[in-house]
Simulated assay, not measured.
Amino acid sequence: MAEIERKYKCNCKEVSITHNGSSYLVICGKHINGAYCAFPKLNVAVELSGYDGDYGYNEKKLHLAFTGKEDCLSNDTETLCALAHLITDIIRELPDVLPF
């Protein structure tokens, strides 16, 4: 039987990001071991770095998450780079996660 081991306060944001005429709903936040983002409409969720300004790592993670997807983002390096930078900045502004 599954049991809750620990509980943590949730620090997340839901944002709509536009780039090159397209709009993306993104849920992003911090968790106890780092950060994440999800694109619910695109069925993509990504583990990200929670460190300030870790743009390069987060860009790579987004590229990997969209590789092989039928969505137009899989080959759109410019948009994925812009999204990674915006999401990283949003995550940076969130408070750290602490236990209840």
Results as ranks from 00 to 15, higher is better:
residue 21 G to Y: 02
residue 58 N to Y: 10
residue 25 L to Q: 04
residue 54 D to W: 09
residue 31 H to R: 13
residue 68 G to E: 04
residue 13 K to D: 04
residue 31 H to L: 09
residue 33 N to V: 11
residue 16 S to Q: 02
residue 76 D to H: 08
residue 96 D to Y: 00
residue 26 V to R: 04
residue 81 C to V: 10
residue 88 T to P: 03
residue 53 G to Y: 02
residue 53 G to E: 08
residue 57 Y to T: 10
residue 1 M to D: 05
residue 95 P to S: 01
residue 9 K to T: 03
residue 57 Y to P: 00
residue 47 E to V: 15
residue 22 S to K: 07
residue 3 E to A: 14
residue 73 L to D: 04
residue 43 N to Q: 11
residue 26 V to E: 07
residue 90 I to D: 00
residue 34 G to V: 13
residue 20 N to D: 12
residue 38 A to R: 15
residue 52 D to P: 03
residue 45 A to N: 07
residue 34 G to E: 14
residue 6 R to F: 11
residue 95 P to G: 01
residue 41 K to I: 03
residue 37 C to A: 15
residue 29 G to N: 08
residue 83 L to E: 05
residue 14 E to Q: 10
residue 31 H to Q: 12
residue 9 K to H: 09
residue 57 Y to A: 07
residue 77 T to Y: 13
residue 93 E to N: 05
residue 86 L to S: 12
residue 22 S to L: 04
residue 57 Y to F: 09
residue 87 I to E: 10
residue 84 A to D: 07
residue 76 D to Q: 04
residue 92 R to G: 03
residue 57 Y to D: 03
residue 15 V to F: 01
residue 69 K to M: 05
residue 57 Y to E: 06
residue 6 R to Y: 10
residue 56 G to E: 13
residue 53 G to T: 06
residue 64 L to E: 15
residue 16 S to D: 02
residue 87 I to Y: 09
residue 13 K to E: 14
residue 27 I to P: 01
residue 21 G to W: 04
residue 71 D to F: 05
residue 72 C to T: 01
residue 21 G to K: 07
residue 93 E to R: 08
residue 90 I to M: 08
residue 4 I to R: 11
residue 56 G to D: 14
residue 7 K to I: 05
residue 32 I to W: 09
residue 62 L to F: 07
